[in-house]
Simulated assay, not measured.
Amino acid sequence: MTTTTALPGLALFEVPPVTDNAGAGYAVLLDNAVRAESLGYETYWVAEGRFSNIGLPSALTLLAVLSERTDRLRLGTAVIPLAFDHPQRLAETAAVVNTLSGDRLELGVGKGNGGGFSAAAYDAFGLDENRREELYAEALARLRGAFGLQRVVDGKTFGFYPPAGNLPQRLWQATSKVDTARSIGRAGDALQLHRFASGGPTGAVQKDLVDAYSSELPADRSPRIGVSRSVLPAESKRDAVRLFTEHLERDPGATPWINRGSSPSEILRDFYILHGTPEEIAAELVADAAVSASTDYLFSVPLALDDKHYRDSLAVVAEEIYPTLSTVRPNALSRNSLSTLPIPVG
C-alpha cells in the first residue's frame, strides 16, 4: 500500500505505442503508473486510439486493471473519441471502472485527432469524418443522459447501474477550438489542452482557449484545466538533444507526425518539447500563459516508455520541476467534493 501524499495537479500522460508485443507494452504502462503513484503523482492519464500509432483501443480496460494495482492514483482517459463508442455502453463501462477504483476515474472525451490522424478509424467504423463535429455533439449529449437513464420492465423501474456518483461531474473535454472551449465552460466540464498548438506560440494560443472556457464557466463551478506538456530533463539542452536523437535512431517511427527531414533540434522546437535542465524547463513552464492558468499538468517525456532515462525523468519532474509550478497553481476543486447537481446547458 502506498503512503505517498498526492501532489495536487501533478499528472503523468502516456501514449501507448504499437509494439510487437502488446502484452509487454501494456505491462510497461502499468509499471510506470505504479511508479508515478509512488512518486506522488496525483493522476495517470492514458491515450486511446485505433488504426494509428496509438496502441490502446480501450483505455478503460487498462485503467480497470490499474485500479487494482494502485491505491490513491486518479485514473484518466485522454481521451476517448466518442464517435467510436455507444454512449450508453461507454457510460456503463466507465461507471464499473469508477466503482472498482473507489471513485477515482477522470473521464476525458474528445472527437479524435483531426488532420487525417483519425481518418482510418472513422472509415473502419463506417463513419464520415467530415461529420466529426456533429457526431461528437450527438454522442456527448447521449453520454450525459446515459448516467440517469431509467427503464420500466414489468412494472419495475430499473436505473443506471452501477451508480455513477460524482463521475458525470468529472467529465473532461479536449479541444483546440475557441467555440468548443466556451461550450465546455458553459457545461461546467473540465478542459483538456494538447501538448502543442498551431497558429502561434502554444502558451498564447491555448491561453485564448482558457479565457474562452473561463468566461462561460458557471459561477458555482471552480475551473479545472489540464494542460499537457512534453518535457525532456537532462544535464543540459545539448544533452537533451543527444538523448532525443538517440531515441529517434533506435525508433525512427516514434514520431510519425513530424516533417521528414527535420533535425532532432527542429522537432524539439517545432513541437514545443521543453528540454534542458530542470531549472530551464521549470522557467519555461512558469512563463507559459496556459500553464500558469491551469490546475493540472499532464507531463509526458518523449522517450521510449521503458527507457531508463524516461523512468528517471518521472522523479525529476515530481521532485525538481513540479515544486516550481505548485507555487503558481490556481486553486482547484477537490475531485470528490464536486456538486452532484446537473449543470444546465444552453
Rank of each mutant, 00 (worst) to 15 (best):
S183P: 00
L149D: 02
D208V: 14
G203T: 11
D123R: 14
L167T: 04
L140D: 00
G226Q: 12
A139D: 00
G200T: 14
R170F: 05
W172G: 06
R195E: 07
A212E: 09
Y213T: 05
W172V: 09
F158G: 00
R151S: 13
Y136S: 06
R170Q: 09
G200Q: 13
S215L: 04
S198R: 15
A197L: 15
L127V: 01
L135F: 06
K207C: 10
A124Y: 06
K177F: 14
N130I: 00
I225M: 07
V227G: 01
R144I: 03
S176A: 08
P201S: 14
V205Q: 06
Q150V: 15
A187V: 09
Q192P: 02
E216L: 02
K207R: 15
Q192Y: 13
A212I: 11
G188T: 08
P168V: 12
D211Y: 03
S176R: 13
G185V: 08
G145S: 13
L191F: 11
V178E: 15
I184V: 12
A141V: 10
L140G: 02
Y122L: 01
A204R: 08
S215H: 07
L135I: 06
D211G: 11
T175G: 06
D154M: 00
D179T: 15
T157C: 10
F160H: 03
K156A: 14
A204F: 10
P218Y: 04
D211K: 06
R224L: 09
R195L: 08
Q192C: 15
A190V: 11
R131W: 02
A204N: 15
Q173A: 14
